[in-house]
Design a protein around this nucleic acid. Structure first.
Lengths: 158, 158
DNA sequence: GTTTATGCAAACTGTTTGCATTGCT
DNA sequence: AGCAATGCAAACAGTTTGCATAAAC
């Protein structure tokens, strides 16, 4: 189980948009497809580099930009100054989860509990929003902000 | 109705944490309190500068950092490279809203429709999450990603 | 009188861009 | 062959940090 071969879907859809498929892009897509979690541009660069050393960080950024603009890949930002990317398998994908973000220390906890109820409601909301704002919804991001148990206490010290 | 005088709550809570109240900090808090929308550090700097020209951008950042770490102010990131700040009146505040973020052009649409149903569910979810992860939830961020009507079409061209 | 906050300038970090070269198709 | 994609280095933008000074307490 070295590197999961290709992501035919991504691959195909990508070319469908008229972009060229190159080794670098393929490697980047594989890295994204094989990742459980959201990766930063540098994470991706690191993952791809050993298999394809010719890659440059610039290409990673440029490829990501294209992927994001087509909606095939997702970009989000947790506020730590570096963007994260994740394959857009959509909110029904098995890896889908939401986040708890600690305002005190920046820690991010992924959770997938309660997701089902949330999704049911979101689906309804989406329908309404799509209509009202003429907006095609592909994905969503839900984050709860607050204090993790460590920072909760530290806060009281202050 | 020039600038809403002080934010006694913020003010008091802030000192309660042991920080000193300075003119600059007060001005920054007023700027935040008077804003309908999420402001970037530079927005705040611009708002504060006329009334208190001695202020420096550095202080804005430093004050925001403190406010965020106490939970009095909220920081989020839409992915355009600059962080936004907003008074943490919590999800029940009248200005509370969620976002539609266009992946194609970066446009952000604020919406407040459907908020009530969403909030009801979120409240329930929060309770469960707080317990399970021992995490104190103060606020949340909900964003739908997709394509606005303009980018929807542009995408088909490609 | 101490200690914390400030302003300025310089340092940093992630991301973007210009340009000559390479590699898809 | 023709045009899109790449790599490198330099440019950028937002944010952070060091340090001497000023302001709160």
């Amino acid at each position: 189980m070295k590197k999961k071969q290709g992501s035919p879907l991504l691959h195909g859809r990508f070319k469908g948009y008229g972009y060229r498929m190159t080794q670098g892009r393929e490697a980047i897509m594989n890295a994204l497809a094989g990742a459980k979690d959201h990766l930063s541009a540098e994470d991706i660069y690191m993952k791809v580099h050993p298999a394809y050393p010719a890659i440059g960080l610039t290409s990673v950024y440029r490829t990501l930009e294209v992927l994001v603009s087509t909606g095939l890949v997702y970009k989000f930002d947790f506020g730590d100054g570096r963007a994260r990317y994740e394959i857009s398998e959509g909110p029904r994908g098995e890896g889908h989860h939401h986040h708890l973000v600690c305002t005190g220390c920046g820690r991010i906890i992924d959770y997938a509990d309660f997701i089902d109820e949330e999704l049911a409601l979101l689906k309804k909301t989406e329908a309404g929003l799509s209509r009202k704002y003429n907006f095609t919804i592909i994905n969503h991001l839900i984050q709860f902000y607050g204090f993790c148990h460590k920072c909760k206490n530290r806060k009281n010290d202050k």
